[in-house]
Design a protein around this nucleic acid. Structure first.
Lengths: 333, 333
DNA sequence: TTGATTTGTGTAACCCGTTACATATATAGT
DNA sequence: ACTATATATGTAACGGGTTACACAAATCAA
């Protein structure tokens, strides 16, 4: 690959002049500029970003760390971040952490050592203490990691309450909850929202809450166990759509009809939810806007170095689909 | 961030000695080594990878470029590449190209300028000519991009033939095909396989082949049109599972029962196919092995710089699920 | 005309590691 | 005792850019 020296030699100028042309900085005579540009295109020269990064400590690269690339929620989120960062001339890269602290720290260090300009992270494992070791801008998305790190989340608790209220309005008498991992903030909040709405119900049993760990397999097993032990359940609020699909599958394998025998409502609003049959009623997050906003916040932080921490919370919206529509049920308008 | 100089000063040695400790190269006295290690941990020093990259032209980073991160096939593939590259001490990053040549080239250049060590690419747009401008190791995955670039693919044509044969064995009399984009190699091959098996059938109409563009939405519309125009269709071979899900949805919206009224077989073997109801019979690719093998090949290329181009083709396997099981049908053993 | 500015370009230091080479001491071999 | 070799460490060049600073020519102001 040609270097700036080759260009300088071909154009008969110094490397400083070539650099000025490249960065459009300082004074360069028009004629000289043209000679340099000619040389650049002749050699098909592209400046070495590593050298640039070394000098100015920037790489024009932004990374997104997600816990589970196989959950469609994250590709959708990634899509949004990608679009916004690209518009702002950053190279976007995606990394998968398995929600594993070691992998997260490994990526953060590796990226920092590569002078990545900023990181957006979806994490439930990282602690404030560990983050102190890191010196690049970070924004948390979907989950809060620390009060000192800006975050973009949704109103999980309120969303969960709405979901349960909706099931009630549809006529469900015994509502269970498939929850996510207990150490994930949004999972806890969704559980709280559920509890808010059912804690005073006479029918509530502690075994109406089972953990699906935000995973398909776990959720399917959990749902089967739940429904086998409690045939009286006629509504399930599932903490995310991926598990919603699992719950649906479980009910069908048990010979139950959704929504006739049982209603299912999910959370997230991923497109998968409407692609399957029956489509899943859900509490939709504004995924694209959230990703966009997180990227915006991060870029702001990179540029201004102002350390004003912001915690923004979006609202979720009920999307009524086929997994809950009951002939006899009241509409929820 | 502390630099190697800070470490050297604190340990009372030269930077060369610190570097020797870091890289475990050359001679270092045990006592000196300990002093240096002490200084390193005291300062929480981590070598700057950009500087390393600048010197030796390597970044220990590998990238995977995929055309559509929202198609679950690619996250599954990514997962495999990630695992293997990580095992070999590379940092793995994922980039989404939208199957758009501009974005592909943008990423390739950006990554090359960051001294990425190698790229695995899933592309149907890139030409041999454009690839000549690139000077880092590349391996093609899922789709062949050039005879000069090593590739990992599957036997699409044979897989497609098996799929159609299977539908026939199950008793289907009129078999249609939802194909992918016409400029994508594997899509063309799957179409060829379909044609191999039906071209001599008296019932074949050219309108039995419709394009779903490997996209959910397009495929659903296409399927609806197909089945509305041709109610006689009782079997569909769909060129990928994502479109298979769409086809399933379409049939259900038209009031048809799968597999009673119509059988559907997909291609890819993504986990989504077994998560929905009815689960989709498919021609399964060994996705994980393919990703692993591509990464292995790439790393080999990076290390050996031998330019032996290899084109490896994996076989696909029929996975019989619920979208084709018919009581009356013959088993396909 | 002369000093102040603007314009135009080059030299060299710097970013932070790695490593070739130089140097020095210790140990081994004969 | 005297090379030959192993051990130990430092100096400085290098990778490919950016930019502070120096300097010269051109333009401007008074």
């Amino acid at each position: 690959m040609p270097t700036i020296k080759d260009v300088a030699k071909l154009a008969g100028v110094s490397v400083a002049t070539v650099s000025r042309v490249l960065n459009d900085s300082g004074y360069v005579n028009l004629e000289t500029r043209q000679r340099v540009e000619q040389a650049i295109s002749e050699l098909n020269y592209r400046p070495n970003n590593v050298a640039r990064s070394l000098f100015n400590g920037r790489s024009q690269m932004i990374a997104l760390l997600v816990p589970d690339i196989m959950n469609p929620y994250f590709p959708e989120l990634a899509r949004a971040v990608e679009d916004f960062t690209k518009q702002n001339d950053y190279t976007f890269v995606l990394c998968n952490t398995d929600d594993d602290l070691e992998k997260e720290m490994h990526y953060i260090y590796a990226l920092q050592q590569k002078s990545v300009d900023g990181i957006i992270i979806v994490s439930s494992k990282i602690s404030e203490e560990r983050l102190n070791e890191v010196s690049i801008p970070i924004v948390a998305l979907d989950r809060i990691v620390s009060t000192k790190i800006s975050s973009i989340t949704v109103n999980n608790r309120e969303g969960a309450r709405q979901a349960v209220k909706y099931l009630k309005a549809k006529g469900c008498k015994r509502i269970a909850h498939i929850c996510g991992p207990e150490n994930v903030s949004n999972s806890k909040e969704r559980l709280s929202g559920y509890m808010d709405e059912v804690k005073n119900e006479g029918w509530l049993l502690s075994s109406y809450v089972v953990s699906g760990d935000y995973q398909y397999e776990t959720a399917m097993d959990a749902t089967k166990r739940l429904l086998t032990n409690h045939p009286e359940i006629d509504g399930i609020f599932v903490a995310n759509d991926l598990m919603g699909v699992a719950a649906l599958k479980a009910t069908q394998e048990l010979g139950l009809i959704v929504p006739k025998d049982i209603s299912i409502i999910g959370f997230d609003g991923i497109s998968l939810g409407e692609q399957i049959t029956p489509s899943i009623t859900t509490m939709k997050q504004p995924i694209y806007e959230m990703g966009t906003r997180a990227a915006e916040l991060l870029i702001q932080q990179i540029n201004e170095k102002s350390i004003s921490v912001q915690h923004e919370q979006f609202d979720v919206t009920l999307i009524e689909r086929d997994s809950t529509k009951k002939k006899g049920g009241t509409s929820f308008e």
